[in-house]
Design a protein around this nucleic acid. Sequence first.
DNA 1: TCAAAAGTGTTGTTGGTACACCCATGG
DNA 2: CCATGGGTGTACCAACAACACTTTTGA
Lengths: 235, 235
Amino acid sequence: MTAPSNLQIELAVSTVVFALRPHPESGELTLWLPLVRRIREPFLGQWALPGGPLEPEQDLVSSARATLLDTTGLAPRHLEQLYAFGDVDRSPASTRVVSIIYWALVRADEDAAAVEGENLEWFPADDITEEAGVLAFDHGVILAYALDRLRAKVTYSPIAHAFLPEQFPLAELRRVYEAILNRALDPSNFRRQILAQGTVEDTGERMTGTAHRPPRLYRSNPHRTRYTLTIQETP
Amino acid sequence: MTAPSNLQIELAVSTVVFALRPHPESGELTLWLPLVRRIREPFLGQWALPGGPLEPEQDLVSSARATLLDTTGLAPRHLEQLYAFGDVDRSPASTRVVSIIYWALVRADEDAAAVEGENLEWFPADDITEEAGVLAFDHGVILAYALDRLRAKVTYSPIAHAFLPEQFPLAELRRVYEAILNRALDPSNFRRQILAQGTVEDTGERMTGTAHRPPRLYRSNPHRTRYTLTIQETP
DNA sequence: TCAAAAGTGTTGTTGGTACACCCATGG
DNA sequence: CCATGGGTGTACCAACAACACTTTTGA
């Protein structure tokens, strides 16, 4: 942050976009993400995270938001900075690129706006390599890091709520946790833990039209962040 | 990460360096950090985080390491990326600067190499504003963020160990936690929690020359990261 | 009246807190 | 033999896992 120097360093902003959709085979809800096919060298034809160069008049988040809308059609509310990757050799091209990576969590209702295309495809996060092959640049490493962080963060911060619309029954929230953590949770104990935390509040309304007892609807409580959730398995 | 563009964006790497030293008044161990006095506009004369422009042939961490050695004389082992700050208006100068911030934790034995100077001074982290006034750029915000993250992270990851040399008695580790969290902890329960976690292992050796029962020496266990520590107060 | 999911009750166990107490050393 | 911090024992209590059980709807 001192003297200027004539850099040949390019700055890019890319985003790992997570949405929850049913798995094509099992039908279980899992994490999906969109990838963009490279249409030039290096890594021509391979899949990469959506992103683009940082424009001089754009904030970092704005840049992420703009490319996201552009490439995926999405405008997710939850957008959070993850990490900056800047090793000298991370791109084989002559120019050096430092990438600032964001992650986005797409709400079920926001996901409706998602588009596909020849050069934009969605993949289940956990079988990227089988489906998409090796990602361009170090994007495989970045994705692994993002998944790791998401799974860790979900246990101490209410980010899971970011996948849900305004109002939701607790079972929906449980399904989000199950999808992220990839394991079943005990419904009754889950309910008690979530309510004890105070990260959701009862709206007083109920969902109707279900083939069973109508569940209460909750909204997420903007206060109360950070806690510990001792999430437990069910056999 | 796609098309090049002729940016006017500068990239800088700065570091929040934390070391533990006794407080000038209370004598209690607290967090200190070094600041550099600005010797040019903008913010001439004000204090700023040590840092410098990213050189094209340098990795991000290398850059942090190099400026650190240069300005503070320190070569801390623990260096970790914190966040990238890049708002358009964060510098009043004509050039736009994106700063990637690292934090460093300085071990007690490493701290011996620290230097001071007319333009480099160390301050207790918690009374920066009284001692150093308003920091240059958004460095005040950055510092607050770093302190926050450090205090949160210490409860779920063994970073506190980074302040200690190879071998240490548990009371030393407790003092580190107390200094970071700014409150007293119960010695016996602290011991049990730490041992239960398995983040330290007994070296079999003991410290000698104390005016009391010689404490066992421990070393930190490189496996076992992430856990939850329910740190409790003592009245 | 049955299936299915919502939601409650209850019990055994684990792990944290508080605090009394013993241990080992240097002076 | 005393002061000082190292280290152990233990009793109380809160929180969690497991799972049986009741409730409320649509078909």
